[in-house]
């Protein structure tokens, strides 16, 4: 079954890492990803730019309202996601623990089983 692992964290804290700290986290996450990729379990991975770069289109009453910024004002922001292929929830949880362990931040990881998955174009 395919699962999305949605990563939430306090973006102002993540944004206060020094470049060296950020590089180190990326390196550690990279190691986890490599292991997953080798076993054929890793699908698309994305790290999102800060929410300040976000735009929201809200459809209400037939109107399309374009708003600067993310849809929800929350303490933790949606900062990235993984798609993984796993046999069970336990297996996804193990992977998520590895990812959480590689990241010194706090934050939450929401595990969502995927209904429809289309990988689309293979972007470079």
């Amino acid at each position: 079954m395919l699962y999305a692992i949605l990563c939430y964290n306090m973006e102002d804290v993540v944004g206060s890492w020094t470049k060296e700290e950020d590089d180190l986290v990326m390196e550690r996450l990279g190691a986890v990803q490599e292991k997953l990729a080798k076993s054929g379990k890793l699908g698309p991975v994305a790290r999102l730019l800060p929410t300040t770069a976000a735009t929201t289109l809200r459809k209400s009453g037939g109107e399309h309202l374009v708003i600067d910024g993310p849809f929800a004002e929350t303490k933790e922001q949606f900062l990235g996601f993984y798609v993984v292929d796993c046999a069970s929830l336990d297996e996804v949880l193990d992977i998520t623990r590895d990812l959480a362990e590689a990241n010194p931040g706090q934050g939450s990881y929401e595990i969502r089983p995927i209904g429809i998955f289309r990988p689309g174009s293979n972007f470079q």
Binding site: M10, D12, V13, V14, S16, E21, P104, G105, Q106
Partner: peptide
Amino acid sequence: SWIDAALTAA
């Protein structure tokens, strides 16, 4: 390092 970043951010 998370605590440092959290203090800086706050």
